[in-house]
Design a protein around this nucleic acid. Structure first.
Lengths: 336, 336
DNA sequence: ATGAAAGCGCTAACAT
DNA sequence: ATGTTAGCGCTTTCAT
């Protein structure tokens, strides 16, 4: 019937339902009791006018936002995507909406602009994926009057933080390789978030404890292709019998490079990854790796954030230990 | 010096700079000229008070939002993630922030709630990834008073839409296989967004045109593992010499299943994928596939949306044709 | 160029 | 239980 040229406001609804504006607000928020009959009329008016309350006005008046901002350096890599998914699931269950801000640029100014744009939004809280340098840079720019949670692989701040203890996992994985008889384990690392990632630290620690030589790590980018190039490099070195890669995608690249250079995996060289990517078990050979419950970390991170938002004391920290997944890409030295 | 217990408002800034509130607003928006001297004082006050304007208030007063909502059924799959990245890049360059809403649940009510929560935000526009049923369901719920763009694989609405013409690409890919001497091409499809995806339509069309028999398609889920199971099924059928998979990840699974069942790829069976996933060329054997510029589609989609937001006439539609990437997972029948 | 006044659409505090 | 009155923090007239 009616064809409203402008979107309906709460006043329109009130007029149509024959009640006052606050009464409409009451049925909207459910904050106070309203006579069933009036409630009925209001609800009908809302439908008839296809009224959608303005979040801007609500936030302004109530000083309560319903949006969680997630700041990440990337969104497409497996670990990032899963972590975000976990946060999003937790948030959705509690009625929060997630806004994602990507800060991939190394340009400081651009980071500043992206963060500023995000922070000017009415936000209930912020979650920062501290997986890489952009994440670290972003973290420094979050004002401390905002509920915040950090998600990462190492406990390294005094802020509320959810971690997946990659240092311990890397140590375990390296120990496993050493236990297979390898004299040492080479390491291809992914771009570190800080001076050194937990993955690299754990590897180094295991080697040192075992008294094994510590080879210089090779640096990959996030692209599987860079792993392939490094695989070719590793293939040229006869002394390489075991390689620990920073993540599964790089491991796949390394295996590809190694194989194309004529080295067999795992007969000649053992290769392990990290994360348990969905394709890891599909690979030839199936990848020995470490299962990381990124989505779980995301959910736990959101819980921490929620506690803060609500001002509940709650715990400030949540850590979980990934577990080793033994498949076929690593074996005994000499291919036994 | 000052330790403001509350966040600074524009009034605080005005007071500190010794100007009126509207003047501060003017330097904030850059809408009107302000004396250099006053501008200077205002900017200094902003820094000193670490003032961040409230987006809620701005939106309310100006009726202009700076947030683009992206509604997607998933965020971690390659195509989705890349598309979102493209939108986000375009948006960021124009000063917009992107909010992502995931609607993965089949539950209608949950979709409604998620969409409602998003749409109540102050939004400049909405981009819907119409890649799957949740995306389709979400699209139906977007009110038409909001700038909207649809991103998908087939032109199928009268709304502004950016597409990657997968029908043509699938046809081309199937023709390629047929040209290799295969009597027909089997098809493993990913969950379709509608009755039938463009990928399946293109495959069917090529087969029909060539007068080749049209086998019943097999249905995979989004998990590579489901492809693996289907690979085992296909391995049992001697008549299968060529398989077209709905995406690369499923193709990897299919190859894995085929290989484990003792069939060689491409000697016994040719397998092709779709999307040119970063791992496609790393696979054993390297995957023949079709390159899809998802990020490009995302950027083009944002441009369409921007034109709408600005009320510019502009084009309503953008289509691009993916290109065939020939690698080694497909060969002549009989393995020649 | 700048300030005073008037809202934007909603919720909160206070009456009744 | 419901209406009245005040704002929330900005931008936008409209004067000057």
């Amino acid at each position: 019937m009616t064809t409203p040229s402008k979107a309906a406001t709460i006043a329109d609804v009130a007029a149509r339902a024959g009640v006052s504006v606050p009464t409409v607000s009451r049925v909207l928020t459910g904050a106070a009791r309203v006579t069933p009959e009036k409630r009925e009329r209001v609800e009908q008016a809302i439908v008839e006018l296809s009224f959608r309350p303005s979040a801007a006005a609500r936030v302004l008046a109530s000083r309560k936002a319903q949006v969680i901002a997630v700041i990440a350096g990337d969104t497409s890599r497996y670990g990032y995507a899963e972590t975000i998914r976990g946060i999003e699931e937790g948030a959705r269950a509690e009625g929060y909406t997630v806004m994602i801000t990507v800060v991939e640029s190394p340009d400081e100014d651009e980071i500043d602009r992206a963060i500023a744009a995000t922070l000017s939004q009415p936000l209930a809280g912020v979650a920062v994926l501290k997986f890489d340098p952009p994440g670290v840079a972003a973290l420094q720019r979050v004002p401390d009057d905002l509920p915040l949670v950090v998600l990462s692989g190492v406990r390294d701040t005094s802020l509320p933080q959810a971690v997946l203890d990659e240092t311990r996992a890397a140590e375990e994985l390296t120990d496993y390789l050493l236990g297979l008889g390898h004299a040492t384990v080479h390491h291809v690392r992914i771009p570190p978030s800080r001076k050194e990632d937990g993955r690299t630290t754990g590897w180094r620690r295991a080697l040192r404890r075992a008294g094994a030589p510590i080879p210089e790590p090779l640096d990959a980018t996030w692209e599987p292709k860079s792993g392939q190039a490094l695989g070719a490099v590793l293939a040229a070195d006869e002394g390489v019998t075991a390689v620990f890669c920073g993540n599964d995608e790089i491991a796949m690249g390394v295996i590809s490079g190694l194989t194309r250079a004529g080295r067999r995996v795992p007969e000649d060289v053992s290769v392990v990854g990290f994360d348990d990517h969905p394709l890891a078990e599909m690979w030839t050979p199936p990848l020995t790796t470490v299962d990381q419950d990124f989505a779980g970390m995301g959910r736990r991170g959101f819980e921490l954030l929620l506690a803060e938002i609500r001002g509940e004391p709650g715990k400030q920290f949540s850590s979980e230990r990934p577990r080793l997944i033994v498949r076929e890409s690593a074996g005994r030295v000499g291919g036994a």
